[in-house]
Every structure is written in structure tokens, then in C-alpha cells.
Design a protein around this nucleic acid. Structure first.
Lengths: 146, 146
DNA sequence: TCAAGATAGTATGTATGCATATCAATTAGC
DNA sequence: GCTAATTGATATGCATACATACTATCTTGA
């Protein structure tokens, strides 16, 4: 049987990503929030690692260095994060959540956690775990960065 | 244990997609081709279903109707596809591969097929199959569209 | 210490990806 | 058969995503 597009990991991954972001956007919008998956990742990471600079943040959640500028700018415009010129490196800015950002993250976190299961709602619990583990294996993710 | 970004399907899927497109672009570029994953999908689908219009193509490979205009335009500029005004619907254009497009697809297809395994090269054969099947289950893909 | 290389951030250009709006044409419902 | 709803394509605007190039700054190494 000739391989078709619909057996190809690349195609399936692309569509899975579409599905994932669609669920995210719908759920967040339904709850009255205006936050993209990428923006959420940035906030979540900054909550765990306050004060890191843009390049470090980009590395930890796998953004492009060029892309993160825009993401950070938009988060700053929404007053969710704050940029502080680094005292040790005059090129860099240290990033911090604002109180608004912290509050929003706390509101949104349970929503985002809940919607993860919904993304994979066609799978049983054990299949869901298996899929997560397989994806982590592909990406060689052992655990969260220190 | 608190859930982190790195356990969340949404985050993993986003990174998997990054990885997948990166491998695709690298391999195609290394072989001297300039074709994105999305453009390849469109060509592959048109080879199997010549003459469909943009909306049908978009539906079959899950593009946005607004996005496909640009994709089609670029493929046409590269002389890989051709737009023929439909004779039965004056709004629509029937899409066909050009000889150039057909030739390119034949050249590129084996490359793309080979690179699929590379995307998941951290997995064993059986894990690879399992991942593909799980993704198809999430997306409820049974088989290729008729 | 000082030149060479690396790095932080920005700018630019291209390509998805989607929401929304619009126009023209088609189909449905009555 | 005619209006209303739908649909094909395009346009606009915003948000990733990445390559490349550029400036300012930092770090290395001879």
C-alpha cells in the first residue's frame, strides 16, 4: 500500500498542532481570556523562573530568538510582564511577571490544565499517557529544566 | 507533583511540530529544493485528486480557506500548479499540477517519505507505529479521503 | 590587553494560520 | 421562481515561526 499523506507523521503532527491550538483558543476565549498558547507558555515559565532574560526564556520553551521579541512586547503591552534592564549585562532585559500577570496565570492555569485532556479526548487515559510519553521520547524531554 | 509545561500535550505537540518542520526544511534544502511542508501536502493531494478547487483542497488537508490562497499563489508562481476557471462554477478554480510540478513531486516524494522516519528517529519501529496510530485516533483519521 | 568570536536584542522579509469581512455566484426553501 | 442562506475566493489584520543581517556588548584567548 502506497504511503499517503495521512500516514505521515509530519502531516499528522501538523494537524494535531492545529487541533491543539484550536481547543486552547476556544476554551480561553469562552472563559473571557485573550491569551495564545505561546503567551501562556511564556507566562508559565516566567512564574517558575522569574528574572530570566529573553534568550534564556526562548531557549527553555523552544521559541525562536527573533519571535520572542514580539511575544514579549505583546505581553508587556497587556501589562502581564515587565522588562528590567539587566545590571550585569547591558544588552539584556530581565523579565518578570507583573501582579496582573501573576493573577491572570493563576486564573488561567486550571483552565489550561483541564483543556489538555480535552485535546486528547478521543483517547483513553492509558493511551493519553502513552502518547505524552512517546512525544517526550521524540523530543528527549526527561523533565522540566532546573 | 504539580503539572508543568513539559507534561502538557499542547506544549509537546507544539514542539513536535517545530521539530517536524525543521527536519523537513533541512532535508529538502539539503537536496536543493525549496518547498515547505504545507506546499508539499498541497502538491501531493493534487496529484491524487487533480482538478479539485481550492476549498476542497483546503478541506482535505485541513488548511484554512484564507490561508490556501497564498499557498496556491506561491505554487503557481513557481509554476508547479495551474489554475483553470471552473466551467460549472464561475467562482471556483480547478487546480492541476503542471508537468514541472509532477516532476518535482516525483523527485521529492522519496525524500519526504524517508524523512518521516527521521522525525521520529528517537523511537523504535513499534513505538513509531504506536505514535502514528495514536495521532490518527486523536484526529479520528481512518484512512485517506476517497 | 586587545582583537576575535560569541551573544542579546532588534529589524526585515517570507510563510503559515486563523478570524473577520466582503463580493460574486450558487443552492435551498418556500 | 424568487428571496435567503450558503459557498468560493479574496482582502485585511494579528500572531507565530524562522532565516538573515545588524548593532551593541560581552567573553576568550593568545
Amino acid at each position: 500500500m502506497a504511503p499517503t499523506l495521512f500516514d505521515m507523521p509530519g502531516h499528522l503532527i501538523r494537524r494535531l498542532n492545529q487541533h491543539s491550538t484550536a481547543v486552547f483558543q476556544q476554551r480561553l476565549k469562552a472563559a473571557g481570556h485573550d491569551l495564545t498558547p505561546v503567551q501562556f507558555s511564556a507566562l508559565a515559565r516566567l512564574a517558575d523562573a522569574p528574572g530570566i532574560d529573553q534568550a534564556t526564556l526562548a531557549g527553555q520553551i523552544a521559541y525562536d530568538r527573533a519571535t520572542i521579541g514580539g511575544v514579549v512586547k505583546r505581553l508587556e503591552q497587556k501589562a502581564l510582564i515587565q522588562r528590567q534592564p539587566s545590571e550585569t549585562d547591558r544588552r539584556a532585559f530581565n523579565l518578570y511577571l507583573t501582579p496582573t500577570g501573576t493573577a491572570l496565570l493563576q486564573q488561567v492555569w486550571p483552565l489550561v490544565a483541564a483543556l489538555q485532556a480535552e485535546i486528547l479526548c478521543n483517547l483513553s487515559d492509558s493511551d493519553r499517557d502513552a502518547l505524552v510519553q512517546l512525544m517526550q521520547m521524540v523530543l528527549r524531554i526527561e523533565d522540566a529544566p532546573a
